[in-house]
Design a protein around this nucleic acid. Structure first.
Lengths: 209, 209
DNA sequence: AATTGTGAAACACTTCACAGCC
DNA sequence: GGCTGTGAAGTGTTTCACAATT
C-alpha cells in the first residue's frame, strides 16, 4: 500500500531539506528508503506527475505534495487514551518530535493519574473525553489501554467522531464501520521475531510497519 | 505473510485455554481474529494437517504446534538497547506479559542510567553488550535509540550474533545480510493515520502489524 | 546521458468453490 | 450437516523493460 511509504519519503525529504538538496532522483530516494526506484516513481506518479525527466524531483514540491496528501498541512489534533507505561512513553514521543501531530489531551480512568501532566499535557478523566473530542475536532486517537477496556473506549471514540485509531492494546477492535483501526501489538511483533531468529527466514533488511 | 498471523492465533488459543475450550472451528477463529476462515485453514494446513473434518481443531495441539513453529517452546533471550522513554516502556511491557520472551538485559550509553534497574533488569553499559550477547546466546534485540546511533548499534548486535532486530528508531537499518530487521516507526504510523482521518480511505476494521 | 513515466509480466496473497471426511 | 483441505480464480502489489523527455 502506498500510504505506508509516504511518511518514509517525507522523512527523507526533511533530511534532504536540512542538507539543502533541491533536486533528488528516484534512485537516490531508493538508496535512502530501501524501496525500489520503480516503485518510488509509481508511488509519486499516482498523485500527479511531479518529476522532470533527465533530472529528478524537486524536493520542496514533493515534500509539500506529500504533506498535503497525508493531510499534514492542516493541524492534526490527536488524543491518547491510557496513561500507563506505554501510553506515557507514546505521549512523550509524540510531543518530542516534529511529526506535524498535535497531542491535545491524554485520558485515563485512574483518579490517581488524573490531573498529572505529561510534559505540558494534562491527564484528564474519561468523563471529559466526549467534550474534548467535540471541542477540538479530534479525528485521530491513540489507544494504550488494557485489552479488556479497548472496545469500550473505541466505541466512545467513534461516537465522538474519531475516524482513525492507532491501537496498541492486544485486542481486535471493531471500528463500527466508521473508524479505521490500525493495530500495533508489541507482543505479536516480539513473537514474530522469535520465528525469524530461529533461522527459517531469508536474511534481508526488511522494512516493516 | 503467515508468520504475522501466528501470534494472533496464539493469543486466541490462550484465551480459549482459559475458557477451557477443547475444540475450535476455523469459523470461530475467524470471528475472534478478524481473518477469513479459508485463510485460517490455509495457514494451519501449511504446517501439517491438524484439524478433523466435521469437527474443528484441537486447541491444545494447535497451540503447541504454533508455539513450536514460532520457536517459543524454547526460551528466547532478548536484549533491549536504549533506555529512554520508549525503551523503558518497552522493557516494562516485555517483562509484564507472558509472551514467552525473556528480557535478559537493557543497555544504554548514558552513564547516568547505567546501574539503574527496570523492574529487576539492570541497565548496563554498551561496553558489556558483546559479552552478554555471547554468554546468554542472545539472538533477538529490541532497538530504541536515536536514529543517529541506530546503524552503529545494529552492527554491534549483528557482530554479536543477533539474528532478528525490532527497530523503533526512525532509520533504515542494514542487517548486513545476517539479521532480519523489522521496523516500527511510530511517527510513520501516526502520519499514516492522518491520511485515513482525512476521509480518503475505506472504513473498515483493519488488522495491522 | 540521465531520468521519469508506464504498459506488461511476474509474483504474492486472498477469496471462491467444492470435493472429501467425520 | 458441518467442517476441513485445496485447486482455481481473482486481486493487489512489485518488478521488468523500454519509450518519452530534458
Amino acid at each position: 500500500m502506498v500510504v505506508k511509504r509516504l511518511p518514509v519519503y517525507l522523512r527523507v525529504l526533511n533530511e534532504l531539506k536540512d542538507e539543502a538538496v533541491d533536486i533528488v532522483s528516484s534512485h537516490e530516494l531508493a538508496r535512502r528508503t530501501g524501496f525500489s526506484s520503480e516503485q518510488i516513481r509509481k508511488d509519486l506518479a499516482c498523485f500527479g506527475a511531479l518529476g522532470t525527466r533527465g533530472l529528478g524531483y524537486r524536493t520542496d514540491v514533493l515534500r509539500e505534495r506529500i504533506r498535503s496528501v497525508l493531510g499534514l498541512d492542516r493541524t492534526l489534533n490527536v488524543v491518547l487514551v491510557g496513561a500507563g507505561n506505554l501510553g506515557t512513553a507514546l505521549a512523550r514521543y509524540t510531543l518530542s518530535r516534529e511529526t506535524g501531530i498535535n497531542l491535545v489531551a491524554v485520558f485515563d480512568d485512574d483518579p490517581e493519574k488524573v490531573g498529572r501532566r505529561i510534559e505540558d499535557v494534562e491527564i484528564r478523566a474519561m468523563a471529559d473525553l466526549a467534550g474534548v473530542l467535540a471541542e477540538q475536532g479530534v479525528r485521530v486517537a491513540i489507544l494504550a489501554v488494557p485489552a479488556s477496556a479497548a472496545q469500550g473506549v473505541t466505541d466512545l471514540l467513534v461516537a465522538g467522531g474519531v475516524e482513525a485509531i492507532l491501537n496498541f492494546s492486544p485486542a481486535k477492535l471493531d471500528g463500527r464501520g466508521k473508524a479505521y483501526v490500525k493495530n500495533i501489538d508489541l507482543a505479536i511483533e516480539l513473537q514474530s521475531l522469535a520465528y525469524y531468529a530461529s533461522g527459517e527466514a531469508g536474511r534481508a533488511g526488511t522494512s516493516g510497519a
